[in-house]
Design a protein around this nucleic acid. Structure first.
Length: 592
RNA sequence: GCGCCCAUAGCUCAGCUGGAUAGAGCAACGGUUUUCUAAACCGUAGGUCUUAGGUUCGAAUCCUAAUGGGCGUACCA
């Protein structure tokens, strides 16, 4: 039990004993003591004045006195303007550090018996990944790690959008203008090669539209009548009727893309347990539509199309199956949701998808609830804001994207330059240098993207490089390396202190209080599906350590007990930084 | 038109279920290295928390409206 919980319970007892009133536990407000005051835990006394019929100050003093007498952890208290600040005994914090924080399972909750699927990435196979995908991938990966630390069994899934008209566009452009170009012949990464033809298609398409308009067609007509778009549509039909030539082309180009994605995923450090392919799932959902019709959730219009009326829920009428019996997006998603559940019987399912699809998921989940799916309540859309450039939105077709591979390479390159300027790599082998630059470059990028609340949109200026100082990944990595350096000098292996009876300094105590908070941070990050909580916490921790490091010597502490205790404290900090950063998918070096 | 999301320092962001004088980083200015890594530390300056009402002992936080920005409202995915 945390100290906060203990205190809350005793305050309840105090109010009962002092004022003969039984109050609810959740009506007791506890917070961290602000650093300008004495103490670590603060209770707000205003709510109790109703029962005490005394001033907040008197009430606080009475409750404080009660706690001090009845709770051994409470060493002292002071009351300021109705805030009861409690000083928790040093012995409690020492025990927290040496037992809890240093414990094997610190930061890893035991299994809660629940299964959760996190679907993320979900790329199209017609173009390489860009910065928007990077945010998606990092969020999904990190949320999966966080849930896992909270005791969930996690299934990371990737639903690959490998069919449809957009894929045919790349295929057609390659067929028309590719002259048999391959990743091998061109030296291009497979996904980039295919993406190149997607852009070529769009150029050609635009050209044809202009021509048609100049020949007197309206824009809408021209868009429909351009030969390349017609040909792409024919190709899609051929694909659906399993035309061997088209299927072979599709397989070949897809395999290029997958090879490219694998490289990007590996570099990003993300992985998946289960892949779903839309080419396998695009016909799913029709059973669900029938089920909905049978249950009267859906209705059929005269033309045969199937709809659901959500106007009572403040939404619109929504088409779920076309008149010709073919699927729309939501049809497939209904079917895929069922398939996923049948595959894994998970308790929760998280969809990491951009906020432009908020409405879609609202409708999807509502439909599944109306169909009476027992698992529908476990569905959650982790909606995140778009990444925008100063020039506006990124568009693959127009080539105004920040490419994922280039971005990562740039970051690693910058990390290298920065490190070399600082002359930090003496005695590193080439291999070690490479690892370090990777760690720092990607650490900077990942932290930059994850420290912001998912739902907020993100502005990325490619001309302003991502910082390596201050509120950044490298700052935290540096702190870790610094600690490792101290520990190495002391030849530190495992926890040294059994107990410690010296008076804690303010900074030591601050640091322990902060470390002890880590499990709470993990669970709130899981509750909110927000890696940003972890990012901001670990930054705070690193900052606190640096202050401590600067002001209080570890190795040169005169008293060996102090020295040992501080080594234990530093080691606990390093371990916690490592764990927290791992939840963000960021590695930390032991030297930099 | 309707719906959803966002608005905090010059810039990028924290601020947990309402609680004390609203916090960081960057940028600016000044300082710290014979002492465990200066990618660090300390200090100065910078705010009518978009606006107007309301609820409350107490509001950046909750409610209502307005303003500004983003997204959606497709038989695209």
């Amino acid at each position: 039990m945390t100290i906060e919980n203990t205190i809350v319970q005793h305050i309840q007892k105090a109010v009962l004993s002092l004022y003969a009133t039984d109050i609810q536990l959740d009506s007791i407000v506890i917070q961290e003591t602000r650093k300008e005051f004495e103490g670590q835990v603060t209770a707000v006394t205003f709510p109790f004045t109703r029962f005490s019929k005394k001033t907040p100050e008197q009430t606080g003093a009475e409750i404080g006195e009660y706690l001090k007498e009845n709770l051994k952890e409470v060493a002292d208290f002071n009351v300021i303007k109705g805030f009861l600040n409690l000083s928790i005994a040093d012995s409690y914090w020492v025990d927290e550090l040496l037992t809890s924080v240093h414990g094997q399972s610190f930061g890893q909750f035991p299994s809660n018996g629940q299964k959760v699927m996190v679907e993320y990435s979900s790329p199209n196979t017609n173009k390489p990944l860009h910065l928007g995908h990077v945010r998606n991938n990092l969020l999904g990966f990190s949320v999966a790690e966080i849930l896992s630390a909270n005791g969930y069994e996690v299934i990371k899934a990737n639903l690959v959008n490998d069919r449809g008209i957009h894929i045919c566009k790349s295929m057609l452009a390659w067929k028309l203008f590719g002259n048999g170009e391959t990743p091998e012949s061109s030296g291009l990464k497979g996904d980039h090669l295919v993406g190149k033809y997607y852009v070529i298609f769009d150029k050609e398409y635009k050209k044809q539209i202009e021509t048609l308009i100049s020949e007197g067609q309206t824009e809408d007509e021209a868009k429909k009548n351009a030969p390349v778009i017609k040909e792409a549509q024919e190709m899609l039909l051929k694909w659906e009727s399993a035309d061997q030539e088209v299927i072979d082309l599709w397989k070949m180009m897809n395999s290029w893309v997958y090879a490219g994605f694998d490289v990007t995923y590996k570099k990003l450090g993300v992985d998946f347990k289960k892949y779903y392919y839309e080419s396998d799932t695009y016909l799913l959902g029709k059973d669900t539509i029938q089920e909905g019709l049978d249950k009267g959730v859906f209705f059929k219009k005269d033309d045969g199309s199937v709809w659901i009326d959500l106007t009572d829920d403040g939404l619109d009428q929504k088409l779920v199956l076309r008149a010709d019996g073919t699927s729309v997006y939501i049809t497939q998603d209904l079917g895929t949701a069922q398939l996923k559940y049948d595959d894994f019987k998970m308790d929760k399912s998280i969809y990491v998808v951009g906020n432009e699809q908020d409405y879609h998921f609202k409708v999807l989940f509502l439909i599944l609830q109306k169909l009476g799916k027992s698992w529908a309540n476990g569905l959650f859309h982790l909606s995140y804001g778009m990444v925008d450039l100063p020039s506006g939105k990124m568009k693959s077709r127009e080539g105004t994207v920040v490419d994922a591979d280039e971005l990562m390479d740039d970051m690693i390159q910058t990390a290298q330059e920065r490190t070399e300027e600082l002359g930090k790599v003496d005695g590193f082998t080439e291999e070690e240098k490479k690892d370090l630059y990777n760690m720092i470059g990607l650490g900077a990028l990942k932290f930059f993207l994850l420290k912001v609340e998912p739902k907020k949109r993100l502005l990325f200026d490619p001309n302003e490089s991502i910082d390596f100082q201050g509120h950044t990944g490298p700052f935290i990595q540096y702190t870790h390396a610094r600690i490792c350096s101290v520990l190495a000098k002391a030849d530190y292996k495992n926890k040294i202190s059994d107990n410690y009876s010296n008076v804690l300094t303010i900074l030591e105590k601050d640091l322990i209080v902060n470390l002890a908070k880590y499990p709470d941070v993990i669970s709130s990050a899981a509750r909110e599906y927000s890696p940003a909580h972890i990012a901001n916490y670990v930054f705070e921790l690193a900052k606190l350590f640096n202050k401590f490091y600067h002001e209080e010597s570890i190795l040169k502490a005169e008293d060996p007990q102090v020295r040992n205790f501080r080594l234990d404290l530093a080691a606990a900090t390093a371990k916690t930084i490592n764990k927290a950063m791992k939840l963000l998918g960021i590695s930390v070096p032991s030297r930099m």
